[in-house]
Amino acid sequence: MSERIARSFAKAKAEGRGAFVAYLTMGCPTLSQSEQAVDALIAGGADIIELGVPFSDPFADGGVIRSAAYTALSQGVTLDKVLATAKRLRDRHPDTAFVLFTYYNLVFSKGLGEFAAEAADAGIDAVLAVDLPLEERDELLDALKPYGIGYVPLIAPNTPIERVVESARGIENSFLYVITVKGITGARSELPPDLTGRLDAIRAAVKLPIAAGFGISTKEQAETVSMHADGFVVGSALVKRLSAEGKIEGELLV
């Protein structure tokens, strides 16, 4: 079983910072530009990369990531192509953790067994399906387990603590993705005032590392969140930059 995720969090902790989890929708502006951008993110200090698979009906996403998904789909980007890209990235970056970030239908429709085998071959460390809550996740977990692929549970602002504990149960070599706001993905100028208390409560309740995401786009937000979580996720801000400039270079966060 791969331990890249656990090692990524441990390394960041040892360096006295939160792990930087970076999300990109693969295939926007093009798949090869996404691939190069992942190289740049890793060079720029990202610890864990979330490879977003474009879906026709991205109902959990804000405008930036939706628009990226439509761009990617219009170029024929599919789960298979993202996995092929992941495999090349894995060859170049043997130590970086890769999380496949997807809507459930894409992997379900492929066939869970076949998907798990191909994800393992591509060097995927964990899968996150945005529309697969605790009650429905067992069939995917069962398919991933023989390959040692982890699963990233989502925790929402209105998830009761008992349910947080339940969501973490049986999950290894992964982390909890804590959603900071009720709503869809996208940068926000202010994070909710009760967020830090909420992160403390979750961290006290589970052993898995926790990473906070949705709405985080600045260095200052990342530093604030890192005082109360093991990592932070930046998504829309990076997707927006890559969509506009075609590449990612320089500081990842400002």
Binding site: F59, V130, D131, P133, E135, E136, P153, L154, I155
Partner: peptide, 22 residues
């Protein structure tokens, strides 16, 4: 079955934020 499954169909495939309101 619990959570509204009709045989293999149905269920609650939504974002976690909607589980509490559901």
């Amino acid at each position: 079955k619990p959570n509204g499954h009709f045989g293999p169909y149905g269920g609650q495939y939504v974002a976690e934020t909607l589980m509490a309101p559901l």
